[in-house]
């Protein structure tokens, strides 16, 4: 994972709630066996509407997306995070995210920033004309108009994002602990290993 500590730039003021994973990337795009090239299918149904924010030149290549409640609800498809990254988005700010999406975003160095609705409303306003600055180190979102919103983030995730930690590599350092657990369980619950023919 590439380290990420801040995102600065324009933001797509989307604002809608319950943006589900089928909206972020429809199932027809999930037939790929690679992670790249999904940006073309990102937000397909929204982009079919004339005047949508994604095709508005004012927001061209914006690295931030501002959305409503329950962003990324629905499927577990990591293709949603891949498609957004491929579109050039590095951070999403919303009042809430689905659990699976926020996990997938994190694994891909895509920031999923939770802020209350009134902060979202203000950022939607700012996004019309100006850039937004997300700083992961200080856990703040700021604007050129002296707005300053603090956000929470799980300390482990913050550490991994800033340092670009390979999570599998990190877990593999615990291989001995995993082996100890496996030995203990196979003795106490031997029936746990399935009879896979």
């Amino acid at each position: 994972m590439k380290p990420i500590s801040s995102v600065i730039g324009r933001a797509y003021p989307l604002g809608l709630k319950n943006i589900d994973t089928d909206i972020i990337i429809p199932a027809a795009w999930l037939k790929t066996i690679s992670r790249s090239g999904l940006g073309k299918g990102a937000f397909q149904s929204l982009r079919e509407v004339p005047g949508n924010v994604f095709d508005d030149p004012a927001y061209a290549d914006a690295p931030i997306l501002i959305a409503g409640d329950n962003f990324g609800c629905g499927s577990s498809r990591e293709h949603a995070a891949w498609a957004m990254a491929d579109l050039g988005i590095s951070a999403v700010i919303a009042p809430s995210f689905s659990d699976i999406f926020s996990g997938n975003a994190f694994k891909n160095g895509l920031l999923a920033i939770v802020l209350p609705q009134d902060a979202i409303d203000r950022l939607m306003e700012v996004a019309q004309t100006d850039s937004i600055h997300i700083d992961l180190e200080t856990q703040t979102v700021t604007t050129p108009f002296q707005d300053r919103f603090a956000f929470e983030i799980d300390p482990f995730r913050k550490h991994c994002l800033i340092n670009g930690v390979d999570e599998i590599g990190l877990t593999l350092k615990s291989s001995d602990a995993i082996s100890t657990y496996e030995t203990k369980i196979s003795a106490s619950q031997p029936w746990l290993t399935p009879n896979i023919a």
Partner: peptide, 11 residues
């Protein structure tokens, strides 16, 4: 997600 699928496969 797929990153976690890989994580579970490996660990």
């Amino acid at each position: 997600g797929t990153s976690e699928v890989e994580h579970v496969l490996a660990t």
